[in-house]
Amino acid sequence: MIKTEGLTKYFGNIKAIDNLNLHIKEGEVFGLLGPNGAGKTTTVRMLNTLTLPTSGRAEIDGLDVVKQANEVKRLIGVSPQELNLDKELTGRENLRLHGLLHRMKGREERIEELLKWAGLSDRADNLVRTYSGGMQRRLLVGRAIMHRPKVLFLDEPTVGLDPQVRRQIWDIIRDLTRQGVTILLTTHYIEEAEMLCHRVGILNHGELIALGTPRELKAKVGHFVVESLDNGVTNYRLFNTRENAYKFAEQRADDVFIRESNLEDVFIKLTGERIVR
């Protein structure tokens, strides 16, 4: 459904994305993970036609994102990182304009349906600028899926949200997954990718440094982690089996902490950097 070949983007001399090759299947939820500035948003913007690649190519459902940009735009839904709703309009008006931009039939029914889905029915006729961050994010996702896109781009959908509201957004994403929408999700919250995505790609400094299911990636580095404090420095040791982890821990006199590995450990192992949470 999404395919990139050698996709590369330079901003002047600065390399944002280098030779990205991705295949995302229909109905897959793919997480693009990485710290700020890794090139996640640039990747999404090239795929959703907002940014021109420097070289390489990308396809959505067999359509070239540069040469067939207008056809691509019919297939995709975009929920950008920034809340780019029209704040001087009401929620309902935002949706209505989106439906008109996509020349949707059955627009008004769909608007009611989405307002209900996003839990905004009773606030539909208030200006968006009176909405909370979570309400705006739900409306943004609702707008992105309004025209029933085949591919949905969710760029940092939960950034800056309260824990409860983040969970609401996760439920929304799970609901969309059940509906079979292909989703490209970017996030720098590791647990989010682990929970929601079928496969994950880790980006660092514009390069894809790992690709696989969360389970595969964790298996690569080891399933168990022993954290210990050595002279004020936290050390991580990764083990494939629980037994080996225990064995190591027992030899240590000081306090150690054993846990299952997560995608963050994968990231640290691969880059030597810890993601700032």
Partner: peptide
């Protein structure tokens, strides 16, 4: 400022 124009730019309008 509001980036609202991106909504037009990712919609199938010319």
């Amino acid at each position: 400022h509001f980036k609202t124009f991106e909504e037009y730019q990712v919609s199938p309008v010319t």
